[in-house]
Design a protein around this nucleic acid. Structure first.
Lengths: 224, 224
DNA sequence: ACCTGAACACCGTTCAAGT
DNA sequence: ACCTGAACACCGTTCAAGT
């Protein structure tokens, strides 16, 4: 029974979780599938093609994330954002995968579309919704990227650098903060940041909605 | 005259701009410096060490970015954010470099410290300022990462995928937006996002300042 | 249709030995 | 102190040839 593309992708995802993105090589993957390296290229066009497929797989199900009919645009945006973060955190180097993907697949496009739809329900024009979407997506990517990177909190940092952080002479604010840092600060930080974003978005989108009180460009509008 | 560490870093930066991060190998760099690959390891501990040094070099001068004495916290935060984006855009793959750095150097720490200082001037406690700082930094990193990635706008995308974007059936909002996309949309998007963030921050920080009306933990406070 | 064998042109890193 | 020579253990990708 011949190898299927889906088996290649599945095994790659398993391997990713085991050894991380840096160690995930086509040769290692081929070994795991008991084929020669060249065999993979019958199923994927390139390693990047494989990584793009992996990215899509990680986002599977997210666009279909349910939202109750009466949900406010804000809650829907929040749910989508939280869902995206969860999806990225569910696999090792998930955010790096997303950031490195070159061709956005259906899942990614659908997520962006849903987010824009939610933001549009404020009455803001589509360009404002697109800016808002960009902002939220950038935030999530940047945040989880830091969250999953092996620095600072992984406690594998050398001491000299830890000391630098506490150097109150050079970094008065950081130093004080570093002292009160706790393991779940990052979760709280994500939620705080998301609230900040949504707060800012509601102000911004309302203002843009006023500027353009009769939106004609939205998908719901007539085209004449 | 022997090679200096600084020459290695300088040449690496030049090479980065020429060929990009993916093509920047220690062997190629050694060739450019007219030494054998092994020679580099006298000057840098590892490739990652070199990349960290590169990251710091890209951020050089940023922490000393002047701010007029009467500048509001908001304008200082905005200036710092814009400065960071400019610094990252000034070199190929700048954002990827920042995102991939494992040990934050003095410049990076100083930028974070200055940002926290600005946010603290609202009267908000330090943990709120730290959350705010995280949010802004995540946003900038995520945004420029996308900006510098070779997808969509580089016009090197295959047609099938461009079509998908315009598929109004599947992605009603994206499709409409894609039609009106212009080259400097990204600049406008960054500024819009930054404003959204600052708007949200001012609400959030003011609220946190009220909750804790007598901040004692800041560097300016007495320690008794 | 799917895979092997074998090659091509590379990697990062180490380390004895040279100067 | 700084570098070479040479090796070790890898990479991604291609493609004729096999089945």
């Amino acid at each position: 029974m011949p190898l299927q593309r889906s088996e290649v992708v599945d095994m790659a995802l398993k391997l990713l979780d085991d050894i991380g993105l840096d160690a995930l090589s086509t040769r290692r993957l081929a070994g795991e599938l008991d084929v020669r390296p060249g065999a993979l290229y019958w199923h994927v066009a390139s390693k990047q093609d494989l990584l793009d497929a992996l990215t899509e797989k990680i986002l599977d199900g997210l666009p279909e994330l349910p939202s109750a009919p009466g949900t406010s645009w804000r809650d829907e945006a929040r749910g989508l954002a939280a869902g995206l973060r969860d999806a990225l955190l569910a696999h090792r180097d998930g955010a790096r995968l997303l950031a490195g993907a070159v061709s956005p697949g259906p899942n990614r496009l659908a997520i962006a579309d849903r987010m824009m739809g939610a933001l549009s329900r404020t009455g803001a024009p589509l360009d404002a919704a697109a800016y808002g979407n960009d902002t939220v997506m950038s935030y999530i990517t940047g945040f989880v990227l830091q969250e999953q990177s092996e620095s600072l909190d992984t406690s594998e940092v050398d001491e000299s650098q830890r000391e630098a952080l506490f150097d109150a002479e050079r970094y008065p604010y950081l130093a004080v903060w570093a002292r009160s840092w706790t393991p779940d600060s990052r979760r709280l930080s994500f939620e705080a940041g998301l609230d900040i974003l949504l707060e800012g978005l509601s102000v911004y989108l309302a203002r843009e909605a006023e500027k353009a009180p009769h939106p004609r460009t939205g998908p719901g509008a007539s085209s004449k």
